[in-house]
Amino acid sequence: MSRVPSPPPPAEMSSGPVAESWCYTQIKVVKFSYMWTINNFSFCREEMGEVIKSSTFSSGANDKLKWCLRVNPKGLDEESKDYLSLYLLLVSCPKSEVRAKFKFSILNAKGEETKAMESQRAYRFVQGKDWGFKKFIRRDFLLDEANGLLPDDKLTLFCEVSVVQDSVNISGQNTMNMVKVPECRLADELGGLWENSRFTDCCLCVAGQEFQAHKAILAARSPVFSAMFEHEMEESKKNRVEINDVEPEVFKEMMCFIYTGKAPNLDKMADDLLAAADKYALERLKVMCEDALCSNLSVENAAEILILADLHSADQLKTQAVDFINYHASDVLETSGWKSMVVSHPHLVAEAYRSLASAQCPFLGPPRKRLKQS
């Protein structure tokens, strides 16, 4: 649940008159999402009104509101027999009622949201009550392989729920002597030191190019640089560091992050930047690179990204790559990247197969709970 924001200063709310007192009302909304995959969808019983329910879910471990999704594969009634019906059901509720908006969509073979439908307002739910769409999607369109909505005969539904909580009022009075504290510009100011090479005390040599930097900042941000300058190493004695395995453009992006906490060109060089972040123990930059690479996972590059993640101990990226390969196994196994990995990294192939087997055979063990970014 997000923290209630402070109200904007009255002088910034309007260029008009300023009242002596004010009130700011925040209506709290808890948002969460749920993904439900139905394997072997074409084998569902086709009687009209037949119901399939998901397991229950909530916004978190401490949330007492429990929900589930309900599907009628062949419609709810005679009117909707040519459609799939989809509903959000409130299973248990400690209150007399709650209000919530919802959005349903289908994830296609690429994991993209399609055929989205959402409620136009927050509906009133009581325990045992459901709301949804009797005519969510035509069955003939859903079952047509050309539309790519049932890869490997799996129907994957994605649901986003927004639950309306209580409202909170914050009130106060205006004073004539309003003090406005300026925003912190530390990142910009440190970035200026790097860009202008002011007050530098060490030189970093990268592929024949020299960059002036500040030992204190490098040591504070990177345990690797800290070790170089702290001990009686040649880098500490000469205040000069030779860097041979990072390209200059990648190095500059890494230094921008060290000084400012930002990497504006990360998406263009996420793979190389991940390697640099791993070498210099820049954990936050490493996770930022993992996130960017996750966003660009595809059938063509899944094997290469899995190898990269394994090489640099990028655990979150590795998990996402394995899950992606499992979901698109029939396509990924035909790529040149996968065939190369079979020869060069057989242990990763074995890991992917083990994960695929456990996903398809849940009876082999208890269900695993899916539970950071600093």
Rank of each mutant, 00 (worst) to 15 (best):
134 K>Q: 01
286 K>Q: 01
366 P>A: 13
80 S>C: 02
260 T>S: 08
275 A>T: 07
257 F>S: 09
14 S>P: 11
157 L>M: 13
233 M>A: 14
296 N>W: 13
17 P>W: 07
13 M>K: 06
81 K>R: 12
292 A>K: 11
92 S>I: 05
207 A>Y: 11
136 F>Q: 11
146 A>Y: 15
156 T>L: 12
214 H>V: 10
215 K>E: 12
272 D>L: 03
327 Y>P: 02
31 K>F: 05
358 S>R: 06
154 K>V: 13
179 V>A: 06
224 V>M: 10
351 E>G: 05
100 A>F: 00
366 P>N: 15
164 V>A: 12
346 P>H: 05
174 N>E: 08
6 S>F: 11
206 V>R: 14
347 H>I: 10
10 P>G: 11
345 H>A: 08
269 M>K: 04
205 C>F: 12
90 L>Y: 02
239 N>F: 09
213 A>G: 13
174 N>M: 04
316 Q>T: 13
43 F>V: 06
349 V>H: 15
276 A>T: 04
346 P>F: 06
321 A>W: 01
182 P>L: 03
58 S>Y: 06
265 N>S: 02
265 N>F: 06
265 N>Y: 02
189 E>W: 11
221 R>G: 13
290 E>Q: 03
267 D>F: 08
188 D>L: 09
213 A>Y: 14
58 S>L: 03
69 L>T: 12
152 D>I: 12
333 L>M: 07
13 M>E: 01
99 R>V: 11
319 T>G: 06
158 F>R: 09
6 S>W: 10
94 P>Q: 08
115 K>N: 03
178 M>P: 01
369 K>F: 02
193 L>T: 09
151 P>Q: 05
190 L>A: 14
341 M>Y: 01
321 A>I: 09
284 R>F: 08
307 I>E: 13
334 E>R: 11
214 H>G: 01
208 G>F: 12
197 S>R: 14
127 Q>T: 11
15 S>K: 11
75 G>F: 08
59 S>L: 07
330 S>T: 03
343 V>M: 08
67 W>H: 00
241 V>L: 03
27 I>A: 08
350 A>W: 07
153 D>F: 06
193 L>F: 10
23 C>V: 07
293 L>H: 11
334 E>P: 11
352 A>E: 06
332 V>Q: 00
185 R>I: 04
4 V>W: 12
57 F>Q: 03
150 L>M: 04
354 R>F: 05
343 V>I: 07
227 A>Y: 15
328 H>K: 12
271 D>V: 09
147 N>K: 05
107 L>C: 14
332 V>S: 01
301 N>V: 05
113 E>W: 04
64 K>I: 03
91 V>A: 09
269 M>Q: 04
24 Y>P: 00
321 A>F: 00
301 N>H: 05
127 Q>L: 09
319 T>M: 13
168 V>E: 02
189 E>G: 08
356 L>H: 05
321 A>T: 08
368 R>Y: 14
294 C>Y: 06
111 G>R: 09
34 Y>Q: 10
30 V>Q: 11
125 F>V: 00
98 V>A: 15
80 S>I: 13
233 M>S: 11
372 K>R: 12
106 I>V: 03
99 R>A: 14
168 V>A: 01
157 L>Y: 08
308 L>W: 04
274 L>H: 02
188 D>R: 03
70 R>L: 12
252 K>G: 07
155 L>G: 13
220 A>R: 15
325 I>D: 00
291 D>N: 04
44 C>S: 07
168 V>Q: 09
340 S>V: 14
30 V>F: 06
235 E>G: 04
103 K>G: 13
93 C>R: 10
339 K>I: 11
137 I>E: 13
71 V>R: 00
4 V>T: 00
100 A>V: 06
37 T>C: 03
172 G>C: 02
112 E>Y: 12
242 E>D: 01
139 R>T: 13
219 A>F: 10
129 K>R: 07
176 M>K: 03
171 S>D: 08
153 D>M: 14
96 S>Y: 14
66 K>C: 12
307 I>R: 08
374 S>L: 15
188 D>A: 02
119 S>T: 12
155 L>A: 11
138 R>M: 10
184 C>E: 10
291 D>I: 13
161 V>C: 05
260 T>H: 04
218 L>T: 11
16 G>C: 05
297 L>N: 00
126 V>D: 11
260 T>Y: 01
2 S>H: 04
82 D>N: 05
306 L>N: 01
261 G>E: 03
315 D>H: 09
188 D>N: 05
150 L>K: 06
233 M>W: 05
47 E>C: 01
103 K>R: 12
2 S>E: 10
18 V>Q: 07
82 D>K: 08
151 P>E: 09
319 T>R: 09
251 F>E: 01
166 D>P: 00
35 M>F: 04
24 Y>W: 15
359 A>L: 06
102 F>W: 14
153 D>C: 11
293 L>M: 02
366 P>Y: 13
105 S>V: 10
361 C>F: 10
109 A>L: 11
324 F>M: 10
366 P>E: 10
322 V>G: 05
10 P>A: 02
19 A>K: 08
320 Q>E: 11
94 P>T: 08
113 E>N: 08
266 L>H: 01
143 L>S: 10
68 C>H: 07
311 L>S: 08
216 A>S: 02
58 S>R: 05
102 F>T: 00
350 A>N: 12
36 W>M: 01
85 S>W: 08
243 I>V: 01
54 S>L: 00
160 E>Q: 12
78 E>L: 11
336 S>H: 10
15 S>A: 11
109 A>V: 12
311 L>M: 03
30 V>H: 04
179 V>T: 07
118 E>P: 12
133 F>P: 14
18 V>A: 09
15 S>E: 04
81 K>Y: 03
163 V>S: 09
179 V>L: 02
342 V>M: 03
361 C>P: 09
284 R>G: 02
292 A>Y: 05
355 S>P: 08
10 P>I: 11
33 S>L: 09
65 L>F: 08
353 Y>M: 14
371 L>P: 13
175 T>N: 05
35 M>V: 02
7 P>C: 14
161 V>M: 12
15 S>D: 11
249 E>N: 05
301 N>A: 10
65 L>C: 07
8 P>F: 07
24 Y>Q: 10
78 E>R: 13
190 L>Q: 12
369 K>S: 03
198 R>P: 15
110 K>T: 03
318 K>M: 10
342 V>Q: 10
86 L>H: 10
54 S>W: 00
319 T>D: 10
31 K>I: 05
